[in-house]
């Protein structure tokens, strides 16, 4: 579910079933990489909402944690980890970060397998049905990661 009043009503009734949080990590840049980050953002937004559609009853999709891409990676990493600790303290069992920005790969090990990096595929000019098929494929792969984690925790 998303952070919408309608979904939150459902959440309050079935809280014990919803144990996973998804945070998209979205970079912002106004320099030379502006378009590249815009592309990542488009891809990530669609991907996240498709994941949400698939797993509506077990996850909460949060608004993206946005950051200035040219600033140093340490502080954004700290923020992300703080979020994670906070959600775990709230009683959620799994927190996943999803991003297309390869900067995060360098700090992947600090996240203890909760960081999912997906390369952004340019969507401009692609045929609609092809786009959908490609997204489905991506969602399917990420689903496997979730399913594995959930099976482990069972």
């Amino acid at each position: 579910m998303k952070l919408l009043p309608k979904d939150i009503e459902m959440f309050e009734q079935a809280r014990e079933h919803i144990d996973t949080i998804i945070v998209p990590l979205a970079g912002i840049d106004f320099g030379t990489n502006m378009k590249q980050y815009a592309r990542m953002n488009e891809f990530l937004t669609i991907l996240a909402s498709e994941i949400e559609r698939q797993f509506k009853g077990r996850i909460i999709l949060l608004p993206a944690l946005s950051y200035i891409a040219s600033l140093d990676t340490e502080s954004r990493k700290q923020t992300a980890l703080e979020w994670k600790v906070n959600f775990l303290n709230e009683g959620f069992k799994h927190v996943f970060f999803v991003t297309c920005d390869s900067d995060w790969k360098a700090v992947e090990k600090d996240f203890d397998q909760s960081l999912i990096w997906v390369p952004a595929i340019p969507l401009e000019g692609l045929d609609d049905s092809y786009k959908r098929q490609m997204m489905d494929e991506q969602v399917r792969q990420i689903s496997n990661i979730f399913s594995q984690k959930w099976q482990q925790a069972k």
């Binding site: 509506k56 009853g57 077990r58």
Partner: peptide
């Protein structure tokens, strides 16, 4: 249950059923 999307025949222990991966 809670509105996830079910898939056909993805649970190996229970083939030929619709399966919801969430719960």
């Amino acid at each position: 249950h809670l509105g996830c999307t079910v898939d056909w025949n993805t649970d190996k222990e229970h083939p030929n059923q619709f399966f919801c991966p969430c719960h």
